[in-house]
Amino acid sequence: MKKINYSIRDTFGKALENIGKTNQKVVAISPDLKQATKLSYFFLKYPERSIETGIAEANAVGISAGLALSGLRPVLASFGAFLTGKNVEIRTSIAFNKAPVVLVGTHGGLIGPDGTTQAGLQDISIMRSMPNMLVIQPSTNNETKSALKYFLSKKNKDIVYLRISREITKEFFPKKYKFKIGKIIPVLDEYKDAYVFTSGPLLSNCFEAIKGIKGKKIGLGNLSSIKPIDIKSLRSIISKTSKIITFEDHTVYGGLGSAVNEAVNKLKCKVKIFNFGIDDIFTQSGSVPDLYKYYKLDEASIRKKIISCLNTFL
């Protein structure tokens, strides 16, 4: 695992700029947040394929739909909280019309001093409920780059919500990592005592937390493909473990944990599932490490929670 000093959103911005060279159909749309979402790289390089809508997300959604239905490949990026707040516009103009737009929601999770109104903490639930919409949360720089490349390949016509975190994350995957839709990527290949699912910046917190629990065999799966979910791997994992634990920096109502619950429920098995994330609350301002500690999603809290799950008798 390498230490790196650039964030997933930087990687997203740079990767998009690169893809713009080979795929002339890519168009970037920004409602006055291109510096924060890092669409700014693309805007500088390809002004003729960049659209600034002003602070008008609903219009940006509609413009993206029109572009997509004209054979172009629009990438609309804003804070996830603001973008997915335009639920009825995304639902009618994009999802219902099968307009192949790549929606990028940055600033997912506990984002820091800007506070809860800016933080994407319900975005996955909202987008997951929408027909025709895929929901992907890349966990590292290499995965972000590869996922973006996948969705912006010339043949791809998926409608996708990409949740991009604001923070610097550790790298788990090789440089030549190839993103595949609907796959759980095993990070720790153990099953006996429990298996943990997460994605995004919590992947490294979970990894470190598990590493600190001695004498137990606990697996870790990177669930970046939240919708569609990898039923096949899930079936195989639950046949080898008795406890599934999910972690997300998102409301527990309708997010990654719910996606796992729904899928496991279909598989009819006796595995016990524990879901952890943000409760039914609005969070607050604070430094990012303080927030993850406060809402019990830092490494130490995650470790405590896993241990308490291990000690729960079924």
Binding site: I63, S64, G66, L69, L72, S93, N97
Partner: peptide
């Protein structure tokens, strides 16, 4: 362009125009 939730058509028209 499919519609039904009011207010959305003109934005899509802009998309068509930029295209």
């Amino acid at each position: 362009f499919g519609t039904g939730a009011l207010g959305q058509g003109l934005s899509a028209a802009i998309g068509f125009s930029i295209a």
